[in-house]
């Protein structure tokens, strides 16, 4: 019995055929590895950001701009954005794969999530550069 998009479809197949399914995708390692790499990168980067965040929130636009014009600050912030968006995207993909079983809805959601994170990531990077070079 397979279930997709709320429809139930009875298939006559042996239990072994069902268990083997389409076989191994021979992938999944990369996803698992990058989830760990980005998590590792986020430890120092988040500590750094949390340390600076209170000051940035209370600063005026000119002060914030001055802070960001420091190359170290700008580069570290860009690295944080890369790690955070990448890690969040991988996590969201796992959630979709875990809970969405519709053969149409799942790939659509996975593609949409990638576009969303790519878009948001590019916007964030653009904002940092704009403030930095303004």
């Amino acid at each position: 019995m397979t279930e997709s998009c709320g429809k139930t479809h009875k298939k006559i197949e042996t239990p072994l055929a069902r268990a083997k399914g389409l076989g191994s995708a021979k992938s999944g390692y990369k996803h698992w590895w990058m989830q760990r790499v980005t998590a590792l990168a986020l430890i120092p980067l988040s500590v750094w950001l949390l340390f600076h965040l209170p000051n940035i929130f209370t600063a005026s636009y000119a002060e914030a701009q001055l802070w960001m014009s420091d190359p170290w600050n700008a580069v570290t912030l860009l690295l944080f954005l890369w790690a955070a968006f990448y890690h969040a995207l991988l996590g969201l993909e796992v959630i979709i794969e875990d809970y969405v079983h519709c053969h149409v809805g799942k790939p659509v959601m996975l593609i949409f999530t990638r576009f969303l994170f790519l878009g948001a990531g590019v916007m964030a990077v653009y904002a940092v550069l704009k403030i930095n070079f303004a």
């Binding site: 076989g23 191994s24 995708a25 021979k26 992938s27 999944g28 390692y29 996803h31 698992w32 796992v94 794969e97 875990d98």
Partner: peptide, 14 residues
């Protein structure tokens, strides 16, 4: 290991 490396067969373990 080839047979096991699969997002669903193995990496669903969280």
């Amino acid at each position: 290991l080839d047979q096991l490396e699969d997002p669903f067969k193995l990496y669903r373990c969280h």
